[in-house]
Simulated scan of single mutants.
Amino acid sequence: MRQEDERNELFTPGAEDLAAIDAWFAEYDALAARGAVQEIADLAVFPLNLATDTPGGFGAVTQWDREEFVRVMSDVMGGGTADMEMKSVRTPRFLTPNLVLVETEATVTAEGQRQSMRYADLLVRTADGWAFQTMVQGGWGHGWPPATRG
């Protein structure tokens, strides 16, 4: 872990920094392929922040504890994603050496149906390595109350 104070400096990641993020996502993708939701939860910092939008046209936010994450993702992933063809292009944007926002453009093909999506994750460096702390993706807010200001 870096000790220097870079709060007021733009951080430019090196090859090692980028490789660490690629390795983290390779592990995540392998776990997702197996449907290993408990192990995926081990890669997170809870409470986990989520931001999405609602069918009514507004943003929505919530936090999940580990139990909620495991319940929802078990429903979403079922037995894993191995039977899906997934292609992802990830663009990490390091805010500091310890915070990276990763934008993903993905195409998923399942049962002959192709869907493209864009989402982002905020990863934070912890004593145990990188972990995701915030997930941002449109379309999850069915039944969620719209966000309100103040």
Results as ranks from 00 to 15, higher is better:
Gln3Leu: 15
Gln3Pro: 11
Glu4His: 13
Glu6Trp: 15
Glu6Ile: 15
Arg7Ile: 10
Glu9Ser: 15
Leu10Gly: 14
Leu10Thr: 15
Thr12Gln: 12
Glu16Val: 09
Ala20His: 01
Ile21Lys: 04
Trp24Gly: 02
Glu27His: 09
Tyr28Pro: 02
Asp29Thr: 05
Arg34Ala: 10
Arg34Pro: 03
Ala36Arg: 02
Glu39Pro: 06
Glu39Cys: 06
Ile40Gly: 06
Ala44Asn: 01
Ala44His: 02
Leu48Phe: 02
Asn49Gln: 14
Asn49Cys: 14
Asn49Lys: 14
Ala51Glu: 13
Pro55Ala: 05
Phe58Ile: 10
Ala60Ile: 02
Ala60Gln: 00
Val61Met: 12
Thr62Glu: 07
Asp65Asn: 07
Glu68Gln: 14
Phe69Met: 05
Phe69Arg: 04
Val70Asn: 03
Ser74Asp: 01
Ser74Cys: 01
Asp75Val: 14
Asp75Glu: 14
Met77Tyr: 11
Gly79Glu: 07
Ala82Glu: 08
Asp83Phe: 07
Asp83Thr: 11
Glu85Phe: 13
Glu85Met: 12
Met86Leu: 15
Arg90Ile: 07
Thr91His: 10
Arg93Pro: 03
Thr96Pro: 04
Val102Ala: 00
Glu103Cys: 08
Thr104Pro: 01
Thr109Asn: 08
Thr109Phe: 05
Ala110Trp: 11
Gln113Tyr: 06
Gln115Gly: 00
Leu123Asp: 00
Val124Ser: 10
Gly129Ala: 02
Gly129Lys: 02
Ala131Thr: 06
Phe132Ala: 02
Gln133His: 12
Thr134His: 10
Val136Gly: 00
Gln137Ser: 08
Gly139Ala: 01
Gly139Glu: 03
His142Leu: 13
His142Ala: 13
Trp144Thr: 04
Pro145Met: 08
Pro146Phe: 00
Ala147Leu: 12
Gly150Asp: 10
